[in-house]
């Protein structure tokens, strides 16, 4: 297995955040104005989403067909998602949720093309969006229920009606847990998407390396492992496609659930 560590190192290198024009440069977290490799593919996903929807929106008709029908099905899916978790007022969140879902979807799917990177494969992008979602749903909750009312709703009404000991003792304990949970939300949202996408890419890379290394060792075992790795590579591609779609869906679904929870914070 000679050469594995170098190849793995270069894979890891390829998947790390780098300046786009300089493969051997570094990006420190505080460099705000570096055009990184992931941002390049983010812009490609941006353009793809925009072009798809603008073209599709111009093709809509009372009797839909083709690309217009596809886009409408997508929008209807988002609308149902919003209405299911937020009720009637969910319709006004359709543009936000739709942008989120389709941007994620296009980024994930386009990242499957060999030689490209999924824009969601870096913590910077996912964390930015997760924090955006976090701020948005808390803003919605505070706007709807007032500052005090929103934070009061963290403690279940059953506890609030207990005696002073239960109310303040157990209530504050639950409140702290809830606040922790709320801060864990953007963290897990960001990590889930990043980890799934990044790990998916690495798995594909590793199987790719095995295929190449197996062929290099001109022996029966080498060829066998190469063939098996090729099969696994194909399966993993299909799996990654599935994961890409499902992770975009989960990110969106959890966003709608959080917004819905903030809207209906007073109901439990």
């Amino acid at each position: 297995m000679e050469g594995l560590s170098e190849k793995l190192a270069s894979k890891l290198h390829k998947y790390s955040v780098l300046p786009f024009e300089d493969m051997y440069g570094t990006v420190s977290p505080l460099d705000a104005f570096v055009f990184t490799n992931y941002i390049f593919f983010l812009i490609i996903a941006f353009v793809a989403t925009l072009v798809f929807f603008v073209v599709a929106a111009n093709k809509t008709a009372l009797v839909p067909k083709g690309i217009g029908n596809l886009a409408e099905t997508g929008v209807e899916f988002i609308r149902n998602l919003c209405v299911d978790s937020m009720g009637k007022e969910g319709v006004k969140f359709v543009p936000f949720i739709g942008t989120l879902f389709f941007f994620l979807l296009f980024a994930n799917i386009l990242g499957l093309i060999p030689g490209t990177l999924p824009a969601t494969g870096t913590i910077g992008v996912t964390a930015a969006w997760a924090v955006m979602v976090f701020l948005l749903y808390n803003y919605i909750g505070i706007k709807k229920h007032g500052f005090i009312g929103y934070f009061k709703s963290f403690v279940p009404s059953g506890v609030r009606e207990m005696g002073p000991l239960g109310k303040w003792g157990m209530g504050s304990f639950i409140f702290i847990l809830e606040v922790l949970g709320h801060f864990l939300r953007p963290l897990t949202l960001a990590m889930r998407l990043f980890a799934n996408t990044f790990a998916g890419g690495m798995i594909l890379g590793i199987f790719g390396i095995f295929v190449v290394l197996g062929v290099k060792e001109i022996s029966a075992i080498g060829l066998l492992s190469s063939g098996l790795s090729l099969v696994m590579l194909v399966i993993m591609y299909a799996f990654k496609l599935f994961v890409g779609v499902i992770q975009a869906y989960i990110f969106t679904l959890l966003t709608t659930a959080y917004i819905g929870g903030a809207l209906h914070a007073d109901e439990h």
């Binding site: 780098l18 460099d31 925009l50 543009p95 942008t99 941007f103 870096t122 930015a128």
Partner: peptide, 27 residues
């Protein structure tokens, strides 16, 4: 020089937020 960092880089935070905002408005 590669680091699989879980520290988000500023170079990615603002472009992704900006891209999202622009895409949101346009869409």
């Amino acid at each position: 020089g590669a680091s699989i960092s879980i520290i988000p880089s500023l170079a990615e935070i603002w472009p992704s937020l900006f891209a999202f905002a622009v895409l949101f408005l346009l869409l």
